[in-house]
Computed example of a mutant assay.
Amino acid sequence: MNKTIKKIMIVDDNEFDCYITSKIINNIDESIDIMEFNSSTTAIQFLEEFQNTTDKLPDFIFLDIYMPVIDGFGFLDRFNDLSDVIKSHTKICILSTTVDDLYIQKAKINSSVMFASKPVTNEFLEDLFNKTN
Score class of each variant (00 low, 15 high):
74 G>S: 04
40 S>Y: 05
74 G>N: 04
79 F>A: 10
46 F>M: 03
104 I>P: 03
81 D>K: 15
103 Y>V: 09
101 D>N: 14
104 I>Q: 05
88 S>N: 14
11 V>T: 07
34 I>T: 09
117 S>M: 11
55 D>H: 04
30 E>W: 02
96 S>K: 03
22 S>A: 04
85 V>E: 05
133 N>A: 11
96 S>T: 15
122 N>V: 10
109 I>R: 13
62 F>G: 02
51 Q>H: 14
73 F>G: 01
49 E>Q: 11
72 G>Q: 05
70 I>H: 09
45 Q>M: 09
102 L>E: 15
125 L>H: 07
99 V>T: 13
85 V>W: 00
67 M>W: 04
128 L>R: 12
70 I>C: 07
94 I>C: 05
86 I>G: 04
119 P>H: 07
18 C>A: 10
73 F>I: 02
22 S>N: 06
78 R>V: 09
41 T>W: 01
2 N>K: 13
3 K>T: 09
62 F>L: 13
51 Q>C: 11
7 K>L: 07
128 L>A: 12
79 F>C: 10
23 K>Y: 13
81 D>N: 14
29 D>K: 10
4 T>P: 00
97 T>A: 06
94 I>P: 02
59 D>N: 15
27 N>G: 14
37 F>N: 05
30 E>R: 08
131 K>C: 11
122 N>Y: 07
11 V>Y: 01
89 H>D: 01
37 F>E: 09
83 S>M: 11
84 D>M: 08
129 F>Q: 11
32 I>W: 07
123 E>I: 12
10 I>F: 03
128 L>S: 13
46 F>G: 02
105 Q>E: 15
83 S>W: 04
12 D>F: 06
106 K>Q: 15
84 D>R: 08
115 F>Y: 13
98 T>I: 01
124 F>Y: 15
91 K>R: 15
126 E>N: 14
2 N>R: 14
120 V>I: 15
